[in-house]
Design a protein around this nucleic acid. Structure first.
Lengths: 141, 141
DNA sequence: CTAATTGCTACAGTCACTGTAGGTTCAAGG
DNA sequence: CCTTGAACCTACAGTGACTGTAGCAATTAG
């Protein structure tokens, strides 16, 4: 008999909440696990690996549909690696795009903040800049 | 008579969808505008300014509750600038935190991708790394 | 005058969970 | 054996910030 763990321990091992594990089962990316006589879920080592895979991918920002694709690739080891590689590249591009976007925001926020001299709202640069797009550093997004 | 514009033009001017404008009214951060006899919304210059303010703040990543606060500050020009400044600083911190996080993700994705040699799934590094936390560059997040 | 566009309300759906209510099961201590 | 308390169960509502849809009514251009 291999070790079977209840949902609480499975969630803890994967670093997520109990509800999240049930949610993954509900949307069909985690298989329905074995149950006790009392109807409580018991997860096998394989189940835990799959859950860990999902959580790790989520932490890397992969959306669930992409993870679904990755899992079905992982389930079929004879398939080419290309598809998985493409998904990872797509995700990397997304991350790079988001970083670029956030760095522009950072610039603009810093610009806004340094111009605020700390008087009353009437001459607050933060409020003013927000109300006037022409004061943007980089123009329209 | 000042220029009053229908919702479509207001949305276009602010760079958002018509539904978004109605949504802002619904949650109470845009006032109910004047209507035509036929019950269609007409926006004044003041309304447009407020909408632009909201959109600009949203583009900078401010959440709506923060924008609500900024607006009530902006509505009362005698108040101190401090509160607005604090909200902007908070937002800047958030952005910086997100950039840091995304840069770590970028590292890990790149690491994962460069190790993928392009064979079959059986020895795909992308799949493997996702399934095994110990291969992370930076350990647990 | 008519057709196309734009507008209206009300509501459901998105993503990836998270929280809640009201109950049941399990493991440990007495 | 019994009880207590933690962990579990289902089912459903809520989050944020919109977005989409259905089924109409009003407006505008030709």
């Amino acid at each position: 008999m291999t070790e079977l763990v209840p949902i609480g321990l499975a969630a803890k091992a994967a670093g997520c909440k109990v509800q999240t594990v049930r949610y993954y089962e509900q949307i069909g990316i985690l298989p329905e696990p074995v149950r006790t006589q009392g109807n409580q879920r018991l997860y096998s080592e394989t189940d835990l690996q799959r859950l860990t895979f999902i959580r790790h991918a989520r932490e890397l920002g992969f959306p669930l549909p992409a993870i679904r694709d990755l899992l079905s690739l992982a389930d079929d080891p004879k398939q080419s690696c290309e598809a998985a590689d493409a998904i990872a590249h797509e995700q990397l591009e997304q991350v790079v795009r988001r970083i670029t976007h956030l760095q522009a925001l950072k610039q603009e926020l810093e610009h806004m903040i340094t111009r605020c001299s700390g008087g009353s709202i009437a001459d607050c640069r933060v409020i003013e800049v927000l109300g006037d797009h022409s004061e943007c550093i980089s123009g329209r997004h």
